[in-house]
């Protein structure tokens, strides 16, 4: 997993609420057996016409936001299916950070496993960030995970919080599985005890 320390880039405003994972990556692209290549299908139905041409009004099709690295979104972002294809599609598109008033649990978890930083902030702060992001290519934000701070185009700083374990893993680009395997002896003894107590498992 790629480390996440600081990120500087344009933030695209997506003020919709309840952006579900079907919307982020529709099911016709779930038959892939790879993690990569989903970026061009991200937000497919909002992004493309039936004939495959781009819808000019969709935010990520606008010149200013084509290289956006940050999304600022409405409440309950990522609800619905557990598909990790949703963060894979965002990452492949180039999005490394999503800022929203709230996220669905599984999506929120999945982001961390893929080096994407989901930031939760109160609605008023989202509203003001959204207003700054509305300014197109000048909407360059910097996210500093170490300091837990967002610097906005207006030069404001907005503080956020990430739970310490996840922050540590993102900063170091740590592989969860490697970390857990170090606890092998604890898992072994847990299993031995359970086999005795609950022989049906």
């Amino acid at each position: 997993m790629e480390k996440f320390d600081t990120l500087t880039g344009v933030a695209a405003p997506m003020p919709m609420i309840n952006v579900d994972t079907d919307r982020i990556i529709p099911k016709q692209f779930l038959t892939t057996i790879k993690r990569t290549g989903l970026g061009r299908h991200a937000f497919h139905e909002m992004r493309y016409e039936d004939d495959g041409s781009e819808k000019p009004d969709f935010v990520l099709n606008k010149a200013a936001y084509r290289d956006a690295k940050i999304l600022i979104a409405g409440a309950n972002f990522g609800c619905g299916s557990s598909r990790e294809h949703a963060p894979w599609a965002l990452l492949d598109f180039g999005i490394r950070c999503v800022i929203a008033p709230s996220f669905a649990d599984i999506f929120f978890n999945n982001c961390f496993k893929n080096g994407i930083l989901p930031i939760t902030l109160p609605q008023e702060q989202i509203d003001s960030l959204m207003a700054e992001a509305d300014r197109g290519a000048n909407a360059v934000f910097t996210i500093d995970l170490e300091k837990e701070e967002i610097s906005t185009p207006d030069g404001r700083t907005v503080a956020f919080q990430i739970d310490p374990f996840r922050r540590h893993c993102l900063l170091e680009g740590l592989d969860d599985i490697g970390l857990t395997l170090e606890k092998g002896p604890a898992i072994d003894s847990f299993e031995a005890k359970r086999a005795q107590q609950h022989p049906w498992l």
Binding site: S81, S82, E84, N109, I177, K183
Partner: peptide
């Protein structure tokens, strides 16, 4: 799969996970 919650009907703690977590469970059972 998010609808893993179905199995909770049996008094089991059942929940959906992403693919990275699927790999984590396959490798570590945790």
């Amino acid at each position: 799969d998010s609808h893993t919650s179905t199995h909770g009907a049996f008094g089991a703690l059942a929940f959906g996970i992403g693919t990275s977590e699927v790999e984590h469970v396959l490798a570590t059972q945790t």
